[in-house]
């Protein structure tokens, strides 16, 4: 596959009066609503894409707040009840000396979500403003965000497994806290935010800035 004639100035589907499909690469005349090949919706609209990104991102951010405040786990050992928040669980792991796992959980439930909020906001802003990072760098950032985002769900699964497993009547019983719900929602919303971002907008903006 070769780029058309001039290898420096790439002709895009949008400029050629066409619309390309994000799922399969098929091109169709502009105005076509549904891809003739794979039936995906076709559109390349900056406003629509960015509005959806911001909406999901804000929803994710809002859901992330109760996820940190409310308890994630409720443990009852010999009649004594204790509640653990996200950060509390990590501190407990550190206390037990399992640094590796504490690091994984810290990374999956604190570092990744926050880095993801920042990365998506940066990507969405950079479409409108002259960017500080070149388009290839931002594309890499976008791919990392899309790949890594779903792994934050680990924490919700850990709560589910612990709840199902640790039911030893009087000796120990674990039940989930409400933070599990808001954390799961936060992860899902940010995944949707990342999916709503159309990477083609970055390349459109690059060309617009050059000219």
């Amino acid at each position: 596959m070769e780029p058309p004639e001039n290898s420096q100035q790439y002709l895009t589907a949008a400029e050629a009066g066409l619309v390309g499909c994000r799922a399969c690469g098929t091109v169709a005349p502009r105005g076509t609503r549904v891809c003739p090949c794979c039936q995906s919706r076709l559109e390349l609209s900056e406003t629509a894409s960015l509005q959806r990104v911001w909406a999901w991102l804000i929803a994710g951010l809002i859901a992330y707040i109760p996820a940190n405040i409310y308890p994630m786990l409720r443990t009852v050992t010999f009649g004594r009840a204790s509640e653990n928040t996200l950060m509390g669980g990590i501190l407990e792991l550190l206390h037990h000396g399992s640094y590796g796992v504490a690091f994984i959980v810290f990374f999956a439930s604190i570092v990744i979500p926050i880095a993801k909020f920042l990365a998506i906001a940066f990507l969405a802003l950079s479409v409108r403003k002259p960017p500080t990072l070149d388009t290839h760098g931002r594309l890499l950032l976008y791919e990392v965000v899309e790949f890594i985002g779903r792994w934050s769900m680990i924490d919700v699964f850990v709560v589910a497994i612990l709840t199902a497993l640790v039911q030893l009547d009087f000796a120990a019983a674990i039940s989930p806290g409400i933070a599990a719900v808001s954390f799961a929602l936060s992860v899902a919303f940010t995944m949707l935010a990342a999916q709503s971002f159309d990477p083609r907008l970055m390349w459109l903006a690059e060309k617009r800035d050059e000219s």
Binding site: M1, Y10, G20, V27, P199, R200, W203, L204
Partner: peptide, 9 residues
């Protein structure tokens, strides 16, 4: 075909 990521033909 259009590149699904950058729209180049």
């Amino acid at each position: 075909i259009a590149c699904p990521v950058c729209d180049a033909l």
